[in-house]
Design a protein around this nucleic acid. Sequence first.
DNA 1: GCCGTTTAATACGGGTCCGTAACGAGTTCC
DNA 2: GGAACTCGTTACGGACCCGTATTAAACGGC
Lengths: 116, 116
Amino acid sequence: MAVVLRPSLAMKLMHEVSLALVQDGEADLSSRQLAILLTIYLEPPPHHVRDLARKLGVTKPVITRALDSMGKLDLVSRRRDENDRRDVVIQRTVAGALAVERLGDLVTAKAAALPP
Amino acid sequence: MAVVLRPSLAMKLMHEVSLALVQDGEADLSSRQLAILLTIYLEPPPHHVRDLARKLGVTKPVITRALDSMGKLDLVSRRRDENDRRDVVIQRTVAGALAVERLGDLVTAKAAALPP
DNA sequence: GCCGTTTAATACGGGTCCGTAACGAGTTCC
DNA sequence: GGAACTCGTTACGGACCCGTATTAAACGGC
């Protein structure tokens, strides 16, 4: 079995988390950027633009631009694949790993503070 | 006690939920809009523009515009307060309640499917 | 070597959202 | 009744994101 979470508590949790993310005004990631970031850090590498586009059901330019934005924030980085130089391998960064870890801690804390 | 959720599981949960929201391509709400929507539906009324702006730490035009957008989607509605006609009271709608409920069900389902 | 395929990136036009500033309507206090 | 204030909205210029279409580089079969 896994995590037991009634819908009313799930909504409360989403509320607390979304409020906290908006209030600190830090990240400012779009929902797609967040989905991309979490995929990169939670699923096993290697990650390519085409895979992310297919997985999220969006076009490749969406991924390219999101990587540009998150790259500026040092949340991800890119490297040419030397075996097939058409490919770009998306890599994790220390700052990105920290940001994902902080998000996990935030959700955990909000979940622990929920009423019974 | 409340919901026990290790950080690694919390991140997995966020990942699943954000992926599902992006993939179905339905709602397309910004993070601020989501925070506003959940506040309206999970905290006791009445809700006013100024309160939401203060709670989220954003300016009032942000709230006005978010209510415009979500009003077009029939997720919220507005009404003048007859006691003080400067005030606008933000009201829930059936479609909005359904959307919030669906989100709660989604999070619940993803949580239940998490590994132990 | 050549041509078709695949990859990521870029150009473009359109839409949305932002914060600051200004605004009109309504209330309060004297 | 008039000044000061509060409330929500709108105007504006700038930034970001989107999907389609196009591009340039690289690969692979022949």
